[in-house]
Each structure stands twice: as C-alpha cells, then as structure tokens.
C-alpha cells in the first residue's frame, strides 16, 4: 500500500521533471530559432532559398485542395445549423453576419491551422526526427552550420507567408459555403448576402483572422521542428515525436486562439 503510494509519488515527480525539461528545451529552441531567423534577416544570402521555395510550395498550393474542402464544408455546416435555429425567430437577415464573423474571426484561421498541423507540422517533426537518427543533424553541426538556420528558418518563412494566404482563400470559401446553404434553404440572393455581410462584418475581423493565422503558422512550425529536434534515437521515436508535434501544436493553437480572442476584444474596446 505504502509502496504503491511511493511509486505514484515517484511517477508524479518524474512527470513534473520531464515537463520542466521539455519546457526548458522549448525555450532554448525558441532562442536558437530566433537567433537563426535574425541571422537570416541580417544576411539574406544565408537563407536556404531553394528549401524556402520547396516548403512554400508544400505548405501553400499543395495544401489548397484539402483546405478548400474543409473550409467550404465548415461554412455549409455552420450556415445550416445557424439557419435552422434563427429561421424560427425570423432572424434570417442576421445569418450572413453570423457566418461572416464566425468564419473570418475563428473558424477560417483555426481550420486552416489544424489542417496545416496535420499536413506540415507532423511532416516537419518527422523530417527533422529522421535526420537526427541518421546523424544528418550532427553532420550539419560539424560542418559549422546552425541546424536551426538550415532546417527551421525556411520552413518558418514559408509557413508565415503561406498560411495567411491559405486563410484568405479558406475564409472566402467558407463564406461561399455559407452562401450556398442560404441561397438554397431560404433563397437569399447573392447581392443581399454580400450587402448583409458587409453591414455586419467589419474589415478588422478579416485582419484579425489573418493575424491569427500568422501566430498559428509560428506555432505549427516551432512545435513541429522542436519535436523533431527532441526525437529520441530509434525509429519509434519519430512516430512519437510526430504525434506529439500534432497534439502539442493543436493545444497551443487553441490556447493562442483563446488568448487572441480576448486580446482583440480588449483592443476593440479601446478602439470604440
């Protein structure tokens, strides 16, 4: 009985210790990454332009079909659910506003980020993890190259550029999905939909979503690469770090989203 309790306590202690270790390593990784990004800003020639283009292609156009599909369906589902509820109260005219605000401020950036986590975040972790196992990271280091500059910076810039663009398209497609439902269910004409959207949705909401997607891009790349660098030394470890990259990314994305939602509300409060 006492032995069990002691075992539990030891287990707890180990978990806390591991958590502390991981936190310290994340902070160290952030520092390393920041230094590498700064180095590439000072010396743009040191950025791996070829890798940058490759990852741009990988994060942007290659992810477009699935992003479009998910966001359009999100818009359809949202519009349908909202329509069923608000039609009872004759509040059809509020639907474009509800759809526009929800997609532009929350669902658009969030769904794009979650798709990108699955597509790119996990790939980053797997790629860097595999490189670690095959000693490629060691090779980079002994060549005098900072692995973060070589591996993280191109991914980071590519994600920072591509995710907002994907979000723009995702937002647009989401609203289009919502319009499809409204036009088929309550026969709302396009110009009415656009006018109501324009009335209810401020431009700042559009920028809010795009700003969020920048933050999400940073989170996805940071966590993906960090988990890659933290991979252990066997093949199973790559799978583990991929999983943890996705789980931690989504957790951080939702946390950041919560925080940003609050922050923007406060900011709008100031603005009046």
């Amino acid at each position: 009985m006492i032995k069990k309790l002691v075992d539990r306590l030891i287990h707890c202690g180990e978990t806390i210790y591991q958590l502390k270790e991981e936190t310290v390593s994340l902070i160290a990784f952030l520092g390393d990454m920041a230094a590498a990004i700064w180095e590439c800003i000072l010396h743009p020639k040191r950025l791996r332009w070829k890798d940058f283009l490759f990852y741009m292609n990988n994060c942007g156009p290659d992810g477009l079909p699935i992003t479009i599909m998910i966001n359009a369906l999100m818009g359809v589902v949202l519009a349908y659910q909202a329509e069923v509820q608000s039609h009872k109260y004759g509040a059809d005219n509020f639907l474009p506003m509800v759809i526009g605000c929800t997609i532009l401020r929350e669902l658009g950036p969030l769904m794009v980020a979650i798709v990108a986590t699955g597509r790119n975040g996990s790939a980053f972790a797997a790629e860097i993890g595999t490189m670690k196992i095959s000693e490629e990271l060691d090779a980079l280091r002994t060549m005098g190259i900072r692995p973060a500059r070589f591996l993280v910076v191109p991914k980071m810039w590519a994600m920072l550029l591509m995710l907002p663009l994907l979000t723009v398209i995702g937002d647009c497609v989401g609203c289009a999905g919502g319009y499809l439902v409204l036009s088929s269910e309550i026969g709302m004409p396009l110009d009415v939909f656009l006018r109501l959207t324009r009335q209810g949705v401020a431009v700042k909401y559009f920028f809010e979503g795009i700003l969020k997607s920048f933050v999400f891009a940073g989170i996805i790349t940071t966590v993906g690469c960090w988990r890659g660098f933290r991979t252990g030394n066997d093949a199973i470890a790559v799978g583990r770090s991929t999983t943890s990259a996705v789980v931690i990314s989504i957790l951080f994305i939702v946390l950041a989203d919560t925080f940003l939602a609050k922050m923007f509300t406060v900011f709008y409060g100031w603005q009046g």
């Binding site: 490189m131 095959s134 000693e135 490629e136 060691d138 090779a139 280091r141 005098g144």
Partner: peptide, 20 residues
C-alpha cells in the same frame, strides 16, 4: 567551436547525406 569544426571533416556511419 564552429571555426574549429570547419577545420576537420567527418564521415558518419550511415553517410548522413542530406536526402533532399
């Protein structure tokens, strides 16, 4: 450290060539 490292070459067990 980087300057010292640039003075030697290392060939790793598995080659460690960059696959991309």
């Amino acid at each position: 450290k980087r300057s010292i490292m640039s003075e030697f070459g290392v060939a790793y067990q598995g080659g460690a060539l960059f696959r991309s």
